[in-house]
């Protein structure tokens, strides 16, 4: 693989992002003045209780929702510009694969639309990419022939295939069972460590966030806001032995305490 590209990424900056939804005429502030910066090639996890607006924040950065106030910039570009240039790859909560396309063709999908933005970019070799995701023997299979974990890996490969500098992952492993989930986390960790891009990763799992991230952003609900940010200073490349290190335990305790504080404030 091209060595120059292994630590490519874009800077993502969200400033003062505020979003309100009207629920039965009552405006609810889902995001209140949220600032978030993801450095080029940085892996940032966002964790928090349901309703803290983490998915909303991701959707605003992805351009799938508009913020009421504040701004988002991706390498100095606006979100619509970034979208036009295919700067971001999205991994949704469910694999969302097309049942009539083979694994290979599903992964190729983002390269087949908005082809003008493919010019001058390093489209990854699909077969190679899928092989590195452990799907080398399944290229010609169809989604329904794959397990849930394999399907989610296809969805991740689909986000990586057009080599976007930014990856947005919205709880990609939440629908998997715990054993499969562990396997998927390590797979993603492995792949990302050799293909560093800026990642915004939403999760409900504290160990998952620590294992993968450079920074863990804890959000609080009502109104959705950033409560704490924890730098994860564990050496890279990491592997599953991280789980055994004392620092990992410390981070876990610290973030869990933060979560508890955040949850307590919600209960009146």
């Amino acid at each position: 693989m091209n060595a120059a590209l292994t630590t490519a990424g874009a800077e993502v900056t969200a400033r003062g992002v505020t979003k309100r939804f009207g629920v039965r005429g009552q405006p609810v502030t889902v995001l209140d003045d949220v600032d978030l910066r993801i450095a080029p090639g940085e892996f940032v996890s966002v964790i928090g209780p349901s309703g803290c607006g983490k998915s909303t924040l991701l959707r605003i950065i992805a351009g799938l929702l508009d913020a009421d106030e504040g701004s988002v910039a991706i390498n100095g570009e606006t979100v619509p510009q970034a979208i036009r240039h295919k700067t971001m790859g999205l991994v949704p909560q469910t694999p969302a694969l097309l049942p009539w396309r083979s694994v290979r063709d599903n992964v190729l999908l983002p390269t087949q639309v908005n082809t003008a933005a493919n010019a001058g970019r390093n489209l990854l070799d699909v077969d190679e990419l899928l092989t590195s995701f452990g799907l080398g023997n399944d290229l010609r299979k169809y989604p329904r022939q794959l397990s849930g974990g394999m399907q989610q890996r296809v969805a991740i490969a689909r986000a990586f295939v057009f080599d976007p500098p930014v990856l947005l992952m919205d709880e990609p492993f939440s629908a998997l069972d715990e054993i499969t989930r562990d396997q998927q986390r390590l797979g993603l960790l492995d792949f990302w460590q050799s293909n560093r891009r800026s990642v915004m990763f939403i999760t409900h799992s504290v160990p998952e966030a620590i294992l993968l991230s450079d920074r863990v952003v804890l959000m609080a609900a009502r109104p959705g806001r950033i409560a704490e940010v924890t730098e994860i200073d564990l050496p890279r490349p990491r592997d599953e032995s991280v789980f055994l290190s004392p620092q990992f335990r410390e981070y876990e305790i610290r973030i869990r305490e933060g979560l508890r504080r955040v949850m307590k404030n919600v209960e009146h």
């Binding site: 992805a62 799938l64 949704p92 469910t94 969302a96 087949q112 639309v113 908005n114 057009f162």
Partner: peptide, 17 residues
């Protein structure tokens, strides 16, 4: 699938696409 739709919108797929 709303997920697939999101994946395509993020890469600026046209309505026709």
């Amino acid at each position: 699938d709303p997920g697939t739709l999101d994946v395509l919108r993020v890469v600026d797929a046209s309505r026709w696409e």
